[in-house]
């Protein structure tokens, strides 16, 4: 049970850290100062969620501490969604990814706040409010881009088409033992809520929902795109160059 629970924590922590790191890459490059602050703050929320989840996983025996779990595992040991490790692309891809993920995490954390595990429920109760905020921010931008100029509409639609094959992985089954024990929600049960949010926002944004297609998979089993290794190499370089270093 403990290994299963650690696995769940690491999946969710890896998701939050990888997307948090991607968003932090915009620091110094965002299209406006306000958006720069927004993306950095979103990243901060996600990295904060990751820290709480890693710390709990370490307590359950998954590793020494949160830092070693974040900085000393290789890409094959990371179990994040492929969607979250893809490069930022243009601003439309960044916003569309954040939207597709937050539209799932908003109901996920809300359901997880009722988890039988008290520690996970506490983390979820904080994260759900943050996810709701992220969803609103991303939805507002997606509407602005989709219903904006011809160019912003074209890019927003292209971003959705690019990311769509990576959305199926969010709904892959969670650990059945943990679901049966009411420790975490079954992702498939959140699909309807996700569909409703996505359809409402796309309609407002005058964007079309991409056609259903073959879905990419593998992140949960540690099989990643070529991009994660490069991202981790940058993210982990200082910690690996100075093992145990403190500052």
């Amino acid at each position: 049970m403990s290994d299963r629970f650690s696995g769940l924590l690491l999946r969710r922590a890896d998701d939050a850290l990888v997307l948090g790191h991607r968003l932090s890459e915009w620091t110094g490059h965002a299209p406006s100062l306000e958006e720069e602050l927004a993306l950095a703050n979103l990243a901060l929320d996600l990295i904060g969620q990751a820290r709480a989840l890693y710390a709990l996983a370490a307590e359950k025996g998954a590793g020494e501490d949160e830092d070693s779990l974040a900085y000393l595992r290789g890409d094959r040991e990371y179990t994040n969604l492929l969607l979250l490790e893809l490069p930022n692309g243009d601003f439309a891809v960044t916003i569309a990814r954040l939207f597709l993920y937050a539209a799932f995490m908003d109901p996920f954390w809300r359901a997880a706040a009722g988890s039988r595990d008290r520690d996970l429920a506490a983390i979820a109760a904080k994260a759900e409010k943050e996810a709701a905020y992220h969803l609103r921010h991303a939805a507002e931008w997606l509407i602005r881009l989709g219903d904006g100029t011809e160019e912003s509409h074209r890019r927003a639609q292209a971003a959705l088409e690019r990311l769509w094959p990576y959305t199926g992985e969010m709904f892959e089954p969670e650990d059945e033992v943990l679901v049966a024990a009411d420790v975490c929600p079954e992702p498939a049960g959140l699909r309807e809520a996700w569909n409703r949010t996505v359809d409402a926002v796309l309609a407002e944004a005058t964007l079309s929902r991409p056609a259903e297609c073959w879905m990419q998979s593998g992140g949960r089993a540690g099989r990643h795109t070529e991009h994660l290794g490069h991202m981790l190499a940058v993210m982990q370089s200082v910690a690996r160059a100075h093992p145990g270093g403190k500052w």
Partner: peptide, 8 residues
């Protein structure tokens, strides 16, 4: 207790 998960 933190206000936000990532409160610095």
């Amino acid at each position: 207790t933190p206000t936000y998960s990532g409160c610095p």
